[in-house]
């Protein structure tokens, strides 16, 4: 279970309000895409969900309890960059979570327990298509492979919530399509709640069950930092056909694939 409630959230940096009055109820298992103009506070919002950053006001509840104010194993994350450890091989990167869990003092597993962790990791790596690259270092992987590794690494501890910050920003269309398929499969298997920041609206509508658009409602021209962004649209996409119709009236329908692999006109 991983129900996320955001209550009256404000975030201010010195001289700048980034987010104001964000209220959200995200039921367990929802796939949320966060979209919005650059600099409006999407990453900041993700950081607060992660516990890396504290809200100025308001709070976030995970299953009714206040979120622990530091990153922990219940929330997995994939950043745009630097998500994997350069000094560990692909396999070592993925078993690290199990090693932390199983060996408090050394952070290292040996013997049968290590083999068990490796077997588990190999399963996940095969799922992300890295089964043939277990002994490589991240620097020897392509950008897309590194992102897949980061996802595998984040998944081994079966987090309740998965946070993705523009995870596919640097990938080509073909690899992206592969990753979409992978992510949706894992999401439906694991029943995690997913928050994904993206600049690609099409990506958001393809993957998500819910699209959250961040934007500033009020702008004070003399003091650009005076007002923060809020959630301006909260679109539930469970009924894709309804969305389709809504978007069709907005004009320019374009072909895209939804998560069931069927062609859907969206955006």
């Amino acid at each position: 279970m991983s129900h996320v409630s955001v209550r009256g959230l404000w975030k201010e940096y010195p001289g700048q309000v980034v987010l104001e009055r964000v209220d959200l109820e995200i039921p367990s298992g929802e796939f949320c895409a966060l979209v919005g103009p650059s600099g409006c506070g999407k990453t900041t919002f993700l950081r607060m969900l992660l516990g890396q950053e504290r809200p100025t006001r308001g709070g976030i509840l995970l299953d009714g309890r206040p979120l622990v104010a530091e990153p922990g194993p219940d929330r997995g994350v994939v950043f745009q960059r630097y998500s994997v450890f350069p000094h560990l091989t692909v396999l070592e990167n993925v078993i690290l979570g199990r090693e932390f869990e199983g060996s408090r003092f050394l952070g290292r597993l040996f013997g049968a327990r290590r083999r068990a962790a490796e077997e588990e990791a190999k399963g996940i790596l095969a799922a992300v298509g890295l089964g043939d690259h277990l002994r490589k270092y991240p620097a020897e992987l392509s950008g897309g492979m590194q992102q897949r590794l980061a996802i595998a690494q984040a998944l081994i501890l079966k987090p309740k919530v998965l946070l993705l910050d523009e995870p596919f920003g640097a990938l080509d269309a073909g690899t992206k399509a592969q990753m979409y398929e992978l992510l949706l499969r894992l999401w439906s298997e694991r029943k995690m709640t997913v928050f994904m920041v993206t600049h690609d609206l099409k990506e958001g509508f393809t993957l998500a069950t819910r699209v959250l658009a961040f934007d500033r409602v009020r702008v004070d021209p003399t003091d650009p930092g005076a007002y923060g962004a809020r959630i301006t649209y909260d679109l539930l996409l469970t009924e894709k056909t309804a969305v389709q119709a809504r978007l069709a009236t907005a004009g320019r329908p374009r072909e895209t694939q939804d998560r069931h692999g069927t062609q859907v006109a969206a955006l």
Partner: peptide, 12 residues
């Protein structure tokens, strides 16, 4: 990111 990542993997 690396340090945060390690924490999300449960590292002390």
């Amino acid at each position: 990111e690396q340090i945060v990542k390690a924490q999300t993997l449960g590292g002390s």
